[in-house]
Design a protein around this nucleic acid. Structure first.
Lengths: 191, 191
DNA sequence: ACCTGAACACCGTTCAAGT
DNA sequence: ACCTGAACACCGTTCAAGT
């Protein structure tokens, strides 16, 4: 494994075990068996390394969406599965999820990261369009509906991760919220 | 003005002008005219100071919701106005908005911060219930609908702030997305 | 090309001491 | 009670030097 790849893996592991604050270049370098400033030969800065982690995760997400899309199942089922892929990722890798969708310093990076993010959304969009063709999602512009669904999922994840919005029960769990939304949206087209 | 209050104001100003990374205790102390370590006599840590900023903003948000709720207007209009209050805050004070709903280190703080957050949501919930009574929102559990609306708004804000989800047009602006959602939800009850 | 050790400027936080 | 100066352990980043 190349040193650059080793640094990405080490940074990912540190994100999983200790959150973003645990990802110091010194810790990443030490975990990769090199001196504390050697990472600068592979990445321009700490943010560039984190962007590389995010890029790798966007690529993996795109692959996962593609796999769901190619499954033999009804469109609505695939949509829920695609959303569940992201929800599961956010639960198992919260710090890395935040890097993808909640980090302004990382999001500011253009180039490869931006391209992989767009590719991931495009694959999600394809599943949404299949739902629209099947008549289980409203006939509004596809990017609008896809954006709304993704935003709602993201909002539910963020608010749950932040512990907000549980004064009582009612909204127990992200998946429940998404199911309610999709059920509420579905009948619209039959009216 | 008490020194503690002065520190909160200085921290808020630094958040607005330079983002969270600009809020060093040294800069806050200097702006407040005290030595770099004097803040520790007023706040247990940097996170405790940021939590105090968030608490003050939650209180202000609660007051704004209350003012909207008491207005003489139709329920749907008040709902959009309440959402707009938050959207505007996120645009004018992005770093402080992130502190309220996107910061795990701050969210972990219990106590007064948690109480004011719950109070703000309760006031938002009251507006949602008015919409349900007026028949412009579905009759699902009120906290579920309120949670969905707030989560969608939050997700749209976060994704727009992160520059994600604009491969083309379609979802131009947070308010447009919210209007589409509310319109899609409204007809459900008449079916 | 890739790595190393030393150094710089910055932090959050602690502590002994002053008034 | 409130403040101060000095200090500690940590960072990201840079640089001259080695192989």
């Amino acid at each position: 494994m190349t040193t650059g790849k080793k640094l990405i893996v080490a940074a990912s592991a540190l994100l999983d075990s200790g959150g973003e604050e645990a990802v110091t270049l010194r810790a990443v370098a030490h975990a990769s068996g090199i001196s504390h400033n050697a990472p600068y030969k592979h990445f321009k800065s700490r943010d560039a390394l984190l962007a590389a982690v995010a890029t790798a995760d966007f690529v993996a997400l795109t692959e996962a969406f593609k796999a769901v899309h190619q499954r033999r199942a009804n469109a609505s089922g695939k949509l829920m599965q695609a959303l569940k892929v992201v929800v599961d990722f956010s639960v198992q890798h919260p710090a890395r999820y935040r890097l993808l969708f909640n980090d302004p310093a990382i999001a500011a990076q253009k180039g490869e990261l931006e391209q992989t993010a767009i590719a991931a959304f495009a694959e999600f969009l394809a599943i949404v369009m299949e739902c629209q063709a099947a008549g289980t999602l409203p006939d509004a512009p596809n990017t609008t509906i896809a954006g709304l669904l993704f935003a709602t999922m993201h909002g539910l994840i963020a608010l749950e991760a932040n512990g907000r919005m549980h004064p009582e029960k009612g909204l127990h769990g992200v998946e429940n919220g998404l199911e309610v939304l999709i059920q509420l949206l579905a009948p619209v087209i039959s009216s």
